[in-house]
Design a binder for these strands. Sequence first.
RNA 1: GCGAAAUUGGUGAAGUGGUUAACACGCCGGAUUGUGGCUCCGGUAUGCGUGGGUUCGAUUCCCACAUUUCGCC
Length: 372
Amino acid sequence: MKIQYSLLKKEENTNARLGKIKTNYGEFDTPMFMPVGTLATVKTLSPEELKNVNAGIILSNTYHLWLRPGEDIVNKAGGLHKFMNWDGPILTDSGGYQVFSLANKENITEEGVPFKNHLNGDSLFLTPEKSIEIQNKLDSDIAMSFDECIGYPAEYDYVKNSVDRTLRWAKRGKDVFNNENQSLFGIVQGGVYEDLRRHCAEELVKMDFDGYSIGGTSVGETKETMYKMVEMSTKYLPENKVRYLMGVGDPIDIIENVIRGIDIFDCVSPTRLARHGHAYTKYGKINIKNAKFKDDFSPIENNCDCYACKNYTKAYIRHLITCNETLGSRLLSIHNIRYLIRLTEDLRKAIKNDNIIEYKEEFKRNYYGKEN
RNA sequence: GCGAAAUUGGUGAAGUGGUUAACACGCCGGAUUGUGGCUCCGGUAUGCGUGGGUUCGAUUCCCACAUUUCGCC
């Protein structure tokens, strides 16, 4: 079956929404933060650890799994869930972000996008049809349309042409889509231009996707610009379908965009920051490598319910990170992911209580205020 | 006891008779938003063993001393 989104409640004072998504691999509440597992693993975490941080759904990547191990291997294993031993929902990104991060923009054609395999230099060509075909085989719960993630800044004419092409790609992907247990999302692009965001959203809605996402944000613009891009996109999306904001995961951005009606987020930062020694806390981000933590035998956060905080001290984790021990990355990843997921849990409570603005103000006072 | 070589930051070290003493590691900070995991960007010796001397000027040349290493008794 397709995913089923239920809108349970709207917050009184903002566009924030409480919802539930049912999938073939269980259900989860929204707003929700989705940890990133590009290569069919959330780096350093086992599926059991992902369960323990309350991850409702994880994200994986079409482009990277296409190169290694190849979609046929995953398919032969019985699909991505069985392959990686994760029995919760999975969303696969289409490779659209790799158009932005790995491909040469000048080489994009109507047909698709040429890539150089970063592992062995082979010439590759990804098309909307190919991306969908790979995702059908990976058998994720939610597949994404193949799009061009546009950078910032970008000229109006470039964005206009790109959006129209992304719409044609969305249609082409939808036409070949063939997996009744999988859902397909369209991606709203359009840069900073409201008429283009609107055009893109409206055309996607006409095509009737199972859900919609907003792309082309967090590519170098200011936070205020990002929030505007989200506003000018959600405005034209139907209330009865889920909305996913791609690549956004800074705590304050999650709050601001939940307020603007976003249901799902994903971001590499909790795990990447963890590998580089950073941890989110109520009072801002800390760098565990700082000398001041050398003999700090308290947990990262006193009231955190994560495995790392319940069992380990900052001094010990600092030591592990300093020595490049993987347990350090793992403990910080567990903490950071749990932090963001708990943030979405708190936001759900705030939506129930209709006090999300107050929640945001208090959060900002703590997060940006003076430490301790 | 005799002879030789060496002595530069936390470490390994490069280097020059004349503005700010290379580089690497470490250390101290910072960055990181649909992941090309262990990356990127800053900062880090007011001083070149100690004391003299030569010189306009010495970390660089000379002398003495100290320390270390190697060889020979």
